[in-house]
Amino acid sequence: MSTTVSAETTATTTAYRTPQVDLALLLVRIVPFGVLAVFGAQKLFGAFGGGGLTATEASFAQMGYHPPLFFALLGGGCEFAGGLLLLFGALTPLAAAMVMGVMINAFAAVADKPLETAALPVILLVIAAALAFSGPGRFSLDAGRPWQRTGFTWGGVSVALAVVTAGASLVVAH
């Protein structure tokens, strides 16, 4: 069984890649998505001073998500798993789609709030989208692996998956 990697993927992973770019991608992954994984752990497990699943379920119910337990698990799970996967640079297009989808929903929930509240979901969404197109860099679990996918096509698929799933959850939940 052979694995073929498109010319686009090969060009994307080798062109313009310097150690400085790979280090920058590592830093861009570690801080925001480490924090996002902590937020997910707070929602799911009550870790790091979070309210846990019961509080998250109540919060989702208050925001109008029904059934609230399902959406609490989905939202917290996407924050936790997507954050960890992007932190480590693993399954990047899928992880980016998870994060973008939950950030679209997070933005929808706070769109009427002040800018400082609504800014974080937008920032995380844009960083995840950038990583979906660029790839996680050399210092990642994806680097050089047969499953590594980067480039315009995979970034586009990731964004499309996020938009479709986020839109579906917004329509179904309310």
Rank of each mutant, 00 (worst) to 15 (best):
T4N: 14
S6V: 05
E8D: 14
T10W: 02
T12C: 06
T12Y: 01
T13C: 00
A15Y: 04
Q20S: 14
V21F: 06
V21L: 15
V21P: 01
L23N: 09
A24I: 11
L25H: 07
L27E: 00
L27M: 10
V28E: 02
V28S: 11
I30Y: 03
L36K: 12
V38I: 15
F39N: 13
G40F: 03
A41C: 10
K43D: 07
L44P: 11
L44K: 11
G46A: 12
A47T: 09
A47H: 04
F48G: 06
G50P: 10
G50R: 03
T56L: 04
T56D: 12
T56F: 07
S59F: 14
S59K: 12
A61D: 10
A61L: 14
Q62I: 05
M63I: 02
M63E: 11
G64M: 12
G64N: 08
H66T: 14
F70K: 02
A72G: 04
L73W: 07
L73Q: 10
L74E: 08
G77D: 08
F80V: 07
G82D: 02
L84Q: 00
L86T: 00
L86W: 02
L86K: 00
F88Q: 00
G89P: 00
G89V: 00
L91Q: 00
L91T: 00
T92I: 03
T92V: 06
P93S: 01
L94A: 09
A96M: 03
A96K: 00
A96Y: 02
M98K: 03
M98T: 00
M98H: 01
M100I: 12
M103S: 06
I104C: 04
F107H: 13
F107N: 03
F107D: 06
A108P: 08
A111F: 10
A111R: 12
D112N: 12
D112Q: 15
L115H: 01
L115M: 09
E116A: 12
T117I: 15
T117S: 13
A118M: 09
V122K: 13
V122G: 05
L124Y: 09
V126K: 10
I127M: 09
A128R: 08
S134G: 04
G135I: 11
P136Y: 01
G137R: 02
R138K: 15
R138D: 05
F139D: 01
F139Q: 02
A143F: 08
G144E: 05
G144Y: 03
R145W: 04
R145S: 13
P146I: 12
W147K: 08
W147V: 03
R149Q: 13
T150A: 14
G151M: 07
G151F: 05
F152V: 15
T153D: 06
S158F: 08
S158Q: 09
A160D: 07
A162V: 10
A162Y: 05
V163E: 06
V164Y: 04
S169N: 14
A173K: 07
